[in-house]
């Protein structure tokens, strides 16, 4: 987040800053594409056995999460999602859903959420592993450049002063008040913490959990399986991390929309971000 241009216009002062470097912008959008494909092809893979377990092996009668279709008292099929032993009727979305050209089908996630749409595990795996490679390579480019350029230290690490005022930041967020003027130059503290968690925790962990599911890699790196508490635990953690990413994504996009969508999106594509100086800030800094 560097360069600065100022323009004075009809009594209001705006300045333009180059908020995101080209590498951050390009890798951000490649990463988004990868995650979209990985999520949807992952759900296709999940559907091949729509149940999750803990430990090394599958304890079939006791899944942590399961989606299937069962007949109700009238004999009509219902989609049922079981979470820790509690059943929920999720007909139409989870367990049983409509597939164009095939009708009502027993399947974990619905066709609109999976890649490919119809049940096709082999192809889902091909999409998943291809985009896993792009995701890893893209991630390494982002990480190396972020470390080398000081971007992480400068822009993602919260300052001590930001951490001390975290309470106020949370309160401002809840009221949807976003920083203005000089404060808008940098990420706010909640943004920084969320990005740090995604970049250094969730994304590396989901990649590791994915690799832990490989029986081949397990034979050279048995520590991986121990780390995740077993192969089925790794599958469950992989799934939970994917869910965490979806949650981050929803909040992230909501915040982008609410805190000035055009300005944000311009800055994440062309790099340029507009700072509006409020009168009193102007008075102080002028």
């Amino acid at each position: 987040m560097g360069g600065l241009q100022s323009e004075a216009r009809a009594g209001r002062r705006r300045s333009w800053i180059l908020r995101h470097s080209a590498i951050v912008r390009v890798t951000h959008w490649i990463n988004f594409l990868c995650l979209a494909v990985l999520l949807m092809s992952g759900l296709q893979i999940f559907n091949a056995h729509s149940a999750l377990y803990w430990g090394q092996a599958s304890d079939f009668p006791h899944p942590l999460l399961a989606m299937d279709a069962r007949p109700d008292q009238q004999g009509a099929l219902r989609g049922v999602t079981t979470v820790l032993g509690h059943d929920f009727d999720t007909t139409g979305v989870l367990g049983l859903s409509y597939v164009l050209g095939f009708g009502e089908r027993e399947r974990g996630f619905p066709a609109w959420a999976t890649l490919p749409g119809m049940q096709w595990l082999a192809m889902g795996r091909r999409w998943h592993f291809f985009f896993a490679w792009i995701f890893i390579i893209n991630g390494l480019v982002y990480l190396t450049s972020g470390l080398a350029s000081g971007h992480f230290r400068r822009d993602l690490l919260p300052t001590g002063e930001q951490l001390r005022h975290i309470g106020g930041a949370i309160w401002d967020h809840l009221r949807l008040r976003f920083p203005k003027g000089e404060e808008a130059r940098r990420y706010n503290v909640l943004q920084k913490l969320a990005y740090l968690a995604v970049v250094f925790l969730i994304l590396p962990a989901i990649a590791l959990a994915g690799m832990t599911m490989s029986p081949n890699l397990d034979s050279i790196a048995p520590q991986l399986v121990i780390l995740f508490g077993g192969r089925q635990s790794a599958r469950t953690i992989h799934f939970l991390l994917a869910a965490a990413l979806v949650t981050f994504f929803l909040v992230h996009v909501l915040m982008v929309l609410l805190s000035g969508v055009w300005n944000n999106m311009r800055s994440m594509t062309s790099g340029w971000y507009r700072i509006e100086h409020t009168e009193d800030v102007d008075d102080r800094t002028a």
Partner: peptide, 20 residues
């Protein structure tokens, strides 16, 4: 990607994905 079925059926897509 919503119509992933059709895309998945194209041979060049298969060939590309096979690289992985």
């Amino acid at each position: 990607s919503g119509c992933g079925d059709e895309v998945s059926e194209r041979p060049w897509v298969r060939h590309l994905l096979d690289k992985a």
